[in-house]
Design a protein around this nucleic acid. Structure first.
Length: 264
DNA sequence: ATGGCAACACACTGTTGA
């Protein structure tokens, strides 16, 4: 089974590129982030026409997540409230950043973690609180779903080898020690990064700034991840970054990451 | 060097992204 994740930076602007990519890469699951469209306008028919079921949770202009799947998903839900309750979550589900569903006995969670703007800002505090909710959400999920894959744009480069210039970017949003610790806390629930099971070197990135020819010079960050519960992690066969879509004209600033696990 | 680039909206300028 192949599970890919791709922050497409507008599903409508990138629609042809996503369709073309799926023709070449017929993954079982594709998780999308930054769809930037309300549900009523999600281009569902374009995906059903090529054999994918689409599940989505979006809003106007910002954020938005979706899961495309070759087979129907079960137990689809969006946001934190279904597991954590409206009293606790309050306004944190207004931004559409989480969608989940099950394929066979495996839970897939697609997330778009907040950017955080800059360290110390209100948006940074929002990001940290959102990560606390995610921690609690996963803690509950793992109790009933030992086979769990969460993937998406985490907006965190876990280690110095995941950024092109770790000295220059030290302490910045996305690499700050507090954010990295929050991600560590989540992994300590019993999740592991399959990309690092197969690749230990640096210079592998999933996002490059549009400006200053960053992609040409491979000045990027690895911020799009899969995290697998241990039963799934043991079944991982490969985890690779596909640079091809980033080379096209009018690309997303992110490129897909593809996980393959044995079975099915 | 707070610029650079791209998408979006009560758009022709301001916000967000990381």
């Amino acid at each position: 089974m192949k599970i890919a994740t791709w922050n497409v930076n507008s599903v409508r602007i990138r629609l042809d590129k996503i369709i073309d990519w799926l023709a070449v890469n017929p993954v079982d699951i594709l998780c999308l982030q930054e769809t930037k469209v309300i549900d009523a306008n999600f281009p569902e028919s374009a995906f059903t026409a090529i054999g994918y079921h689409a599940y989505y949770s979006g809003q106007k202009s910002y954020n938005g997540v979706a899961i495309l799947s070759r087979v129907p998903l079960t137990e689809v839900s969006t946001g934190f409230i279904p597991l954590l309750g409206a009293n606790k979550v309050e306004h944190f589900d207004e931004q559409k950043r989480l969608i989940t569903g099950k394929i066979d006995d495996t839970q897939i969670i697609c997330v778009y973690v907040p950017n955080g703007s800059e360290v110390g800002s209100d948006k940074y505090l929002y990001k940290l609180q959102w990560l606390k909710f995610l921690h609690e959400y996963l803690q509950i999920s793992l109790k009933t779903n030992p086979r769990l894959c969460i993937c998406g744009d985490f907006n965190i480069a876990p280690e110095d080898r995941d950024v092109y210039d770790s000295v220059k970017s030290e302490g910045a949003v996305g690499v700050s020690p507090v954010e990295r610790q929050a991600l560590q806390n989540i992994m300590q629930l019993g999740l592991a990064d399959p990309f690092r099971r197969f690749t230990s070197e640096g210079e592998y990135f999933s996002w490059w700034d549009y400006r200053q020819g960053s992609f040409r010079q491979n000045r990027g960050w690895r911020i799009d991840h899969h995290y697998l519960s241990l039963p799934l992690y043991e079944q991982a066969i490969s985890c690779t970054i596909d640079l091809a879509p980033r080379r096209l004209k009018q690309p997303s600033d992110h490129t897909p990451v593809i996980l393959e696990i044995s079975g099915n």
